[in-house]
Design a protein around this nucleic acid. Structure first.
Lengths: 204, 204
DNA sequence: TAGATTAGCTTACAGATGTACGCTCAAATA
DNA sequence: TATTTGAGCGTACATCTGTAAGCTAATCTA
């Protein structure tokens, strides 16, 4: 890569990082201005346009990066789970760890999931869908769940996990621990309940 | 009430209504400006201050109204359920109906629940807490659930319902129907699962 | 009825925002 | 080496924002 392209990439990264760094419980992506981001990245406001068409494009880039983090998390969780132990517990622990080390990546996903920009919502929904369909596949191959039931189950699981994630984001470590415990119980409820419902359907 | 107070109340309502009317899938409360709201309410921007200290105060007022709507909904659901039928199904149906007739009331609740203003998040959390603790009470008196389990169960139920509500807000009628069906199944999973877990704990 | 109160208005201002335009100068290319 | 390209900059502008100050006229109070 030429010197020029290298420098450009560096500035682009600076912009993305600047935006991520400005996210917090009190600051959502949609509340950031182009000028603020440029300021934080130490470039002139107008130079922003050399890298992104507008703030929206920056945001979608960030959502994509968030998706990547999510998928890496899934892989990590799967690996750990293969080593044995409670799948649910291990998944929750992994999720909470990743959440802890990438809070702002989650912030943009969790916030824009219910945000006001349709493209954003779509992008986040797509990332979460990966999660769900992996889970559906896993459930179908390891249990006798019907497809529809597996889907309902997976959606419920993912909903609870992400919701807990949103709540955990701004909690102290101790509260987070309690939250994770309750989440494990709730996930077990769903798993058990789905099992019972499946059995009932089979015996009819 | 004097003429003066009457007129004042009317203008105040106009402001609140103006704000509600400007909410949509593309427009969150936090993206509204004081001037926009005043314009929609047909008053001068500076007259806004005769009624609210700032936009935040208006927003909290709206959340409170939303909470009221929610509680009315609960009451309505309970009445219907007493007439017999599946409690879960009736609750979901009631919820969806209220959602349909007050979309913007829900928008502000669902959006600010994960918004960037702590006071807002707190206010919404308090409203949802009403929901949960009513459900905990109900569960404890009609089943043999332990308190902790009843709480975990109620939280999971409420989480799924609100999440489905957020998804339903911008769906067509047909999709909404399918969503409601799946939600019913998911809620049953939790109810069944909680029951099984309770039994397991009792036999130990 | 005389005086006090106040909802709503107009005017005004400082600050922030997105972005158009044109320049510079280092890097890429021929 | 001579020419082209393009990342980053500074200046500029129209637009929007929240809100301060002070006026008016209708209502309330004594």
């Amino acid at each position: 890569m030429g010197i020029r392209a290298q420098q450009k990439e560096k500035t682009r990264r600076a912009l993305v990082d600047a935006a991520f760094n400005q996210l917090s419980a009190e600051r959502s992506f949609s509340s950031l201005s182009l000028r603020e981001v440029a300021r934080e990245a130490n470039i002139a406001p107008t130079s922003f346009y050399r890298h992104f068409k507008d703030m929206n494009e920056l945001g979608l880039t960030m959502v994509d990066e968030g998706g990547l983090t999510l998928r890496q998390m899934m892989r990590k969780g799967r690996q750990r789970a293969e080593a044995g132990g409670s799948l649910i517990r291990i998944s929750v622990e992994t999720f909470m760890e990743v959440l802890d080390s990438n809070p702002n990546v989650f912030r943009i996903l969790l916030h824009e999931r219910s945000g006001t920009s349709a493209p954003f919502r779509g992008a986040v929904a797509r990332e979460i869908e990966h999660f769900i369909s992996e889970l559906v596949h896993y459930t179908e191959t390891t249990t006798n769940r019907s497809h529809d039931l597996a889907r309902a189950q997976a959606e419920a699981l993912v909903t609870l996990v992400f919701n807990a994630g949103a709540a955990a984001l701004d909690m102290k470590r101790a509260d987070r621990k309690a939250l994770a415990e309750r989440l494990v119980i709730q996930l077990r409820m769903i798993a058990k309940g789905a099992e019972v419902i499946q059995e009932k359907q089979d015996n009819r």
